[in-house]
Design a protein around this nucleic acid. Sequence first.
DNA 1: AATGAATGAGAGTTCATTCAT
DNA 2: CATGAATGAACTCTCATTCAT
Lengths: 198, 198, 198, 198
Amino acid sequence: MDQMKKHDEKAYAILSGAARVFSEKGYHHASMRDISRETGMSLAGMYHYFSGKEEILFSVQRFCFRQVLDELRKRLESVDDPWQKLETVVRNHLEFFTENVTEMRVLSHEADTLVGDYRTHIDEMKREYFSLVASIIRELRGQDWNDAEQRRVTLSFFGMINWIYTWYRPERDGSPQELAETMMSILERGIAPHRPRG
Amino acid sequence: MDQMKKHDEKAYAILSGAARVFSEKGYHHASMRDISRETGMSLAGMYHYFSGKEEILFSVQRFCFRQVLDELRKRLESVDDPWQKLETVVRNHLEFFTENVTEMRVLSHEADTLVGDYRTHIDEMKREYFSLVASIIRELRGQDWNDAEQRRVTLSFFGMINWIYTWYRPERDGSPQELAETMMSILERGIAPHRPRG
Amino acid sequence: MDQMKKHDEKAYAILSGAARVFSEKGYHHASMRDISRETGMSLAGMYHYFSGKEEILFSVQRFCFRQVLDELRKRLESVDDPWQKLETVVRNHLEFFTENVTEMRVLSHEADTLVGDYRTHIDEMKREYFSLVASIIRELRGQDWNDAEQRRVTLSFFGMINWIYTWYRPERDGSPQELAETMMSILERGIAPHRPRG
Amino acid sequence: MDQMKKHDEKAYAILSGAARVFSEKGYHHASMRDISRETGMSLAGMYHYFSGKEEILFSVQRFCFRQVLDELRKRLESVDDPWQKLETVVRNHLEFFTENVTEMRVLSHEADTLVGDYRTHIDEMKREYFSLVASIIRELRGQDWNDAEQRRVTLSFFGMINWIYTWYRPERDGSPQELAETMMSILERGIAPHRPRG
DNA sequence: AATGAATGAGAGTTCATTCAT
DNA sequence: CATGAATGAACTCTCATTCAT
C-alpha cells in the first residue's frame, strides 16, 4: 500500500512535468527527452508508468478534466438559483485555469491532438461538461430559443472562458475573481431573456 | 511583370496548400513533404518561394490577417454608430472564419508557434486588431470602467469569436449571419453601460 | 536514362551491401546503421531507395529469386530429357548458391521473416519454383506414387539443395559441379521408379 | 533435494516457454519480456535460473540435442545391420522433429546464433551427431568413395532431414513414419554402392 | 526466491534543409 | 526554375540487464 502510493506519486510527478513541457512547447514539439529532463527520470523509466507519449497527454487531460468536473459538481450541490449556478461554473472554471495554467493550456490547446480511444474518452468528458453548462443556460432563458441558438450561446460562453489561456496574466488582468465578475456582468444581461432584435 | 504574376500565383498555391495541411495536422505534425504532396510541387521547389517551413506559416498567418484587417477597415469607413461598428467587426470576423476555415484555424491555433521576428510581426498585427476593437468597445461604454476591465471585456469578446474554430459547423450551427446575431444579442445587453453588480 | 541507370546502380549497391550484412548477422540483428556503414551511404539516404528495412530484405530476396528462376527457365528451354532437366535444376541452384552465398543465405534463412504483401510475393515465387521442380520429378517417376509422396520427395530434394548454405565450403567440399554430381548420383537411383519396400 | 527438483522444474518451464517464443518469432526478435509473458514468471525472476537470454537459447539447444543423441544411442544399441541403423537415425530424428517442432525449429534455425563457449559446446554435439551418422553411411558404401564425397553425401542426408522444419505438416504430408519411409526409399537406392556415373 | 523499478544503449524511421544538376 | 539525391539531427520506443527490497 506504501508501494501503491509511491507508484502513484511518481506517475503524478511525470504528469506534472509533462504538463509543464507540453504547455511550454506544445505536445508535438515536446519530446520524451524533454519530459525526461524535466522530471529527472530516465527516458526508458517513464515507460514503466505510461505506455507512450500519447498516454501521457491523455492522462494529463483526463486528470485535469476530472478535477474540474468533480469540483464543479461538488460546488453545485448546494446551489439552486440558476444564475448562481452559472456564476459557480465561471468561478470554478477560471480558478482552475488560472491556478493550473500549464495543465489547462494543454487541455485547451491540445484538444484535437488525441485520437482513437483516448480521444473518445476525453470527448465524453467534454460532452458531460457541455451538457451540464447547457442545462444551466437553458434554465436561465427558458424555452425562449431553439436548440441551435441554445448551442450557439453555450459555445460562445465556452469561448469566453476557454480563450483566456491565450492572454490572461493575473498581474495585468486582475484576479480570477475580478475576471469572473467581468464575465458575469456580460452574461447576466446578455443571456437573460429579451425581445428579439430589430 | 507576367513573371511576377506567375511567381505570386505559385507562392499563393503553396500557402493555400500549406494552410490545408497545417489546419488538418497542426503545424508541427505537418511535414514539408506533406505540403509538397498537397501542392504537387517538389520538396526542393518550395524553397524557391519560401526560406523554410516557418516562413510558410508566417506567410499564411500574415496573408489571412491582412485580409481580415483590410476588409474590416474598408467596411468600417461607412459606419458611424459604435454598435453598428461592433456588429461590423463580428460579421467581418465570422465571415472570414467560416469561409476560410482552414486558414483561420491556423491563425488561431498556431498563434504561439512562431518565434523571433516572425512572431513580432504577427503580434503587431494582432495588437492593431485588438486596439481597433478595444476602441470601439470603449465608445460603447464610455469611461464607465477602468483599463483592466476594458481589457477583460475586449478579450472575452475575442474569446467568443475566436473559439468558434473549435466547434462551428454551418450545417448544424446555422449560418455565419445567425451566429453573428446570436453573439450580438449577447453583447448588446451584456456590454452596454449598467450599474455595477451587487 | 542515364539518371535511371544511376538510380538503379545505387539501389543495387544497397541491396548488395544489405545482403552481406544480413548474411553475416541475420536480418533482425542487422541494423540499418550497419547497412549504412557497409554501403557508405548515409542512414537517411537509403530511405530514398527503399521504404524501410523490410523492403530491403524483400528486394534482396526477390532479386535473387528472379535470377535463379529466370536463369533456370532459360537453361531448361533446350532440355528435353527429364533426368537432364533435374540435373539442370541442381546445377543451376547450386551454382547460384555457391556464387552468391550471402544473398542465398538470406533467401534460405530469412524465409519466414517477411510478412504481409512482401511475404505473399516471395511465397508466390517459391510456389513457382516448387511447381516447376515438382513437375520434373513427376515426369521421372510417372504415376507411380500419390500426391503426398510426390510432395515429400520434392521437398526432401529441396532440403538437400537448400541446406548447403549451412555447411558448404568449396575449398573443403569440392566444386559446385562435384556437389551436383554427388547429389545427382543419389537422386538418379533414389528417385527412379522401383518396387515398394518390404 | 526437493528444492533441487523445484528449481529444475521451473528452469525447464522457462526453457519450454522460451522455445515456443523463439520458434515463433526467432531468437533475435523474441524479447525477454515475451518469454516472461509466456512463462508467467517475472522478467527479473528468470535471471535466477539463467544468466541471460543467450544462456536460455543455449540451454534449449543443448537440452534438445541431448535428447536426440541419447535416444538415438539407446536405439542403436540393439541394431547391427547398417541399413537398419540408418533407418533408426531417420526415424529417431523425424520423430523428435515432429513431436517437438518448436524446440527443433530453434535448434535448426538458430544454429549460427550462439557465439563463444556456448557455440563451441553445441558445435561439439553436432560433430558427435555428424560422426555417428557419417560412420553409418560409410558402412553402407564401403571404401567406394573419398572423404569429400562421403561428407557431401552425409550432409545432403542431413539437409533432407533437417529442412523439414520449414515445410512439414502432418495433416498434409503424412505421418512421421510415412515420411521416414519416403526418405529411406530414396536413400536405399541412392546411397548404395553403384557404378560411377557416365 | 522473487519482483517492481530503473536505465544506457540502440533500434527503425522521419525531419527540415541543402546542393549539384 | 525546378528537382532528385543526400544528410545530420532528432524522434519515439524497445531492448537485455541490474539492483534494492
